[in-house]
Design a protein around this nucleic acid. Sequence first.
DNA 1: ACCAATTTGTCCGTATGTATG
DNA 2: TCATACATACGGACAAATTGG
Lengths: 272, 272
Amino acid sequence: MRQGRQSLRVPIAPENGIPGGTMEEKTLFDAIDTMPNYKRVTLVIEEQIINGNLKPGDALPTEHALAEQLGVNRSTLREGLRALENVGLVKRAGAKKLIVSVPERAEIAEYTSRAMRLHSVKFSELWEMMILLEPVAARYAAERAPKEVLTRLGQNVKEMEERLHDDATIIRLDVEFHSLVSQASRNRVLVLSEEPLGLLLYSSTKRLYRSSPRARYRLLEAHRKIYEAIAAGNAETAETWMRKHIEDFKRGHVFAGFDFHGPVRPPSDADG
Amino acid sequence: MRQGRQSLRVPIAPENGIPGGTMEEKTLFDAIDTMPNYKRVTLVIEEQIINGNLKPGDALPTEHALAEQLGVNRSTLREGLRALENVGLVKRAGAKKLIVSVPERAEIAEYTSRAMRLHSVKFSELWEMMILLEPVAARYAAERAPKEVLTRLGQNVKEMEERLHDDATIIRLDVEFHSLVSQASRNRVLVLSEEPLGLLLYSSTKRLYRSSPRARYRLLEAHRKIYEAIAAGNAETAETWMRKHIEDFKRGHVFAGFDFHGPVRPPSDADG
DNA sequence: ACCAATTTGTCCGTATGTATG
DNA sequence: TCATACATACGGACAAATTGG
C-alpha cells in the first residue's frame, strides 16, 4: 500500500523500503514498524505536545501546512488529527483553527467512567473506592478549601434545598457536590479519581431517589452538615459526616433492593 | 459545508435545515447541533458500543458498508473511526478487520497518567493519593488475593532480588509490584486509580534509585515483607508495611533533594 | 501455491459554507 | 461588500495486503 512514496519526515519514520512482509529473509533487518501513516501523524503530534514543544494554547498550523510538513495527504493528516481531537489533546478554538489543549477534568472523568462501565465494575468495587476517597476529600477540603470553591459549595447546598423535589436536579447537584468537595481538597489527583465515580453512579442514584422518598432529605441534611464542617474548617467532623453519608448511601442502595455485588448499570435510557 | 446533502440517518441527527448560525430569529427552533459529520460518526458508533448493541469482539462492517449505512463518505467515516480507535473502543484484529473492544487497563492508565502529567500535578498530590490507596490495596490483597496474582507477586519479588542492580528493571518491577497488589485487591476501580500513579512516578523513581544507593535494598525488603503478609493473609501487617513503604518513599524522595511540592517531572529523556 | 475478489491505506481533485481581513 | 483562506465533505482512483477458493 502507500501509493504516495513520501513517508513522514519524522525521527522514527524509516523510509520503509521493505514492504512489511510476514517473512524475514535475513535476521539482519529484523522486524519493524509498518504503521499506517495516519497513526504516525497522531504519534508525532502527540509527542510534540507531551514533551512540551507544543504547549497548550498554541495554535497548530493549517491542515494544508501540516500535511505538507509531514509529507502526507490532507486526508491522511485529518485522520490523524481526529484521533487527537477525541482525546482532548487538540481542540477547536473558534470554528477556524486548532489549538493544542490539555484534556479537561470533565473529559477525563467521562473517559474513565466509560471505561469502568465497559469493564462492568461492580457496585461494591465502586463503593469501596468511595468510602475510601470521599471522607479524606472532605477532610482535606476542611483544611484547605479555596474561598471560591467554598462559595460554590454553599450555593450547591442552597440550590438543593430549593429544588429538592426535582429528581434530575438533585442528582446533578449530588454529583456536583462531591466533585466540589474533591476540588476543595486541592488535590487534582484526588479529583481525577473521584469524579468518574459520581458519573458512574449517576443512574443507580437516580433510581435510588425515585424509590425512596425519604432518601433526599437525608441527602440534603448530610450535604449541609458536611458543608458546614468544611466551611468551619473542622476536618474531623467533615470526614466523619462524609463517611456516614457514604455508608448511608450504601444502606439506601441495598434497602431499595439493588444488588450490592451486581454490576453498575449502564446509563441506558433517560439520562438527560 | 456539507456538500453531499445526505446527513447521517441516526436517531439524533436532524436534517439540519438551518445552517448553524450565531443568531436566533425565533426561540421556536432553539439552538442545536451543528456538529461535524465525522464526529457524529464517532458518537453513533460509540453509543452502540456503550449501550451494548455492539459487544466487544464483534467485528465491524467494512468501511464501505459502514459509510453507506451511515450515509457519509468513506473518508468521513474513517475520520470518525480513527477517533474511536485511539480511545481503544475499536481495535484491529488482523490487519483486515476492526473489532469492537474495551480499553484495557494499560491503555486507561496511560491515558490517565498522561492527563495528570499535562495538568502538571505536584508530587505532593500524587503522594497523598498513594498513601491513601496503597495501604488499603495491600489490606484487600491480603484478604482476597487470587492465587495466580499471588504467584506473580512472588515472582516479582524474586526477580527483583536477582536483578537488584539493574536500574531499569527494578523500576519496572516496582511499578509492576504495586500494580499487582492493587490487582490482588480484586477491585478494578482501585486498580484503575492506582496504575496511573505508578506510571507518573516512573521518572522520579528512577532518579531516586540512582541517587541513593541504599534505597533499593529498602525497596526490596519492603516488597518482601508486604508480599509475605499478603501471602499469609495478614491484612493488618500488609497494610502497615505498605504504609511504611510509601512513607519511606517520600522520605527518600525528599532526602534525595527533590521538591515535594514541585511538579512531577515529564518522562522526557531515556525512559525505555 | 496461485488467482480473484475484497478491503484497507493513501492520494487527488473539487465543491461549499464560513470566517477573516 | 468582496476576496481569500480554510475546514468540511464528497467522489473517484489505485496499490498493497488479505482472504477464500
